[in-house]
Amino acid sequence: MKIAVVGKGGSGKTTTAAVLARTYARRGHETLALDCDTNPNLGISLGLGEDATEALVTVRDALDAGEEEHASSADDLVERFGATAPDGVRLAVVSAIQNPEPGCP
């Protein structure tokens, strides 16, 4: 099962995604929570804690820094650059904005 939670800013996407993920995990499903927000804070809603959430090396940063072979599998990326949140939910952050570069809007 793959679920994407979308909606307007502040409408409760992150909160909903976090509760869904932990609920599935509690029911015994192996659960991956992917934070695709460029301003990621799903870790906080999952209960991972503020510091751990902020420290999460993003998958893309690690790739960009050349710390990772591009040929590695998705499983491998999640394994290396994710964190484990309560109830065993595995969390990975897809990308964060670190520098304000001019880019497309």
Binding site: G9, G10, D37, T38, N39, A96, I97, P100, E101, P102, G103, C104, P105
Partner: peptide, 11 residues
């Protein structure tokens, strides 16, 4: 726009 999306400086 909400969040930290890159172009906020542009806008």
């Amino acid at each position: 726009p909400g969040g930290t999306r890159q172009p906020f400086m542009t806008w």
